[in-house]
């Protein structure tokens, strides 16, 4: 935690804060992303403040994952600008990209676990990546695995795990590095309702600890249930930034709205309003 903070602080010094009064963490400014002739994201603009929990919704292929990829620096915008904590990601290079990513925990849609390593090792590798001294791994890994409910499966290989368990391995790995931002790409996609609910509870708890969470999902039940700020995207047209009440989910798909409620609810960026 301390190390992660330190790294973060270092970066903060390098960055030019975009706005003094608003603790904006993530800023999309007219971002267009196209893969060749296919436009995945068109003229998208939004801000995410520190400590926010944001759902990104939209139909498949609308560009939800692209947004996450843009935040992670996996892809760069074709047009526009993505800033995270004031840092223009277009300025990232091979040298500072890894340390930037080390501040972000990602729960991948397809898990992206290392198939030839155990659950324990999959989590530990993330700790190795951030350069945590090896003696501290065991305690941290065990704690995280307990948190996600995989203590018993610590020495299992991915092939021995169910989809939900794999999802939780991915989550555990993301959480283990104590990131400031958590990106979750359809984290409940492979989970039954109960498990998904448990996961969501966990994410919410983490969010309460001050982590900024951006979750892409098309599971509207969850969106409805947790009543967070929603950014709705439809890659072909425009995106709608929906407030934390996604009650009108069906209606909003073709509209462009910017609901500020969520923002209002978390003026400090570290707190979220009770649902």
């Amino acid at each position: 935690m301390g190390l992660a903070l330190f790294v973060f602080t270092c970066y903060s010094e390098l960055l030019k804060p975009m706005s003094q009064e608003e603790p904006v963490l993530i800023n999309f400014k007219s971002v267009t992303k196209s893969y060749g002739s296919i436009v995945a994201l068109s003229d998208m603009s939004f801000d995410v403040k520190k400590g926010e929990f944001v759902f990104i919704t939209g139909p498949s292929g609308a560009g939800k994952t692209t947004i996450l990829k843009l935040i992670l620096g996996e892809v760069l915008p074709t047009k526009g600008e993505v800033r995270v904590d004031g840092l223009n990601l277009a300025n990232l290079n091979d040298k500072n990209l890894p340390s930037y990513r080390q501040r972000i925990g990602v729960i991948f849609q397809d898990f992206k676990v290392l198939s030839d390593r155990t659950v324990y090792e999959n989590v530990a590798v993330a700790l190795a990546v951030i350069g945590l001294p090896e003696p501290q791994w065991e305690e941290r890994v065990k704690h995280i695995l307990r948190l996600v409910g995989l203590s018993r499966q610590a020495n299992f290989f991915p092939s021995q795990l169910s989809g939900g368990e794999l999802q939780r391995v991915s989550l555990a790995r993301a959480l283990s590095i104590n990131p400031k931002i958590i990106l979750a790409d359809e984290p409940t996609g492979n989970l039954d309702w109960k498990t998904a609910d448990g996961l969501m509870d966990l994410l919410e708890k983490i969010n309460k600890e001050g982590k900024t969470i951006i979750m892409a999902t098309h599971n509207m039940e969850i969106v409805d249930k947790y009543k967070k700020r929603v950014i709705h995207v439809d890659g072909k047209k425009e995106q709608v930034d929906i407030g934390k009440e996604p009650n009108n989910k069906k209606d909003n798909t073709d509209e462009t709205k910017d609901i500020k409620e969520g923002e209002e609810s978390h003026p400090e960026g570290g707190k979220i309003k009770e649902k």
Binding site: L72, E74, D94, L97, P98, S99, Y100, R101, Q102, R103, I104, V106, F108, K112, V113, L114, S115, D116, V125, A126, V129, I130, R173, I177
Partner: peptide, 13 residues
Amino acid sequence: EEVEILNLIGATK
């Protein structure tokens, strides 16, 4: 795949 994953979780070259 491993390299890709490690890349995504911020592993250096």
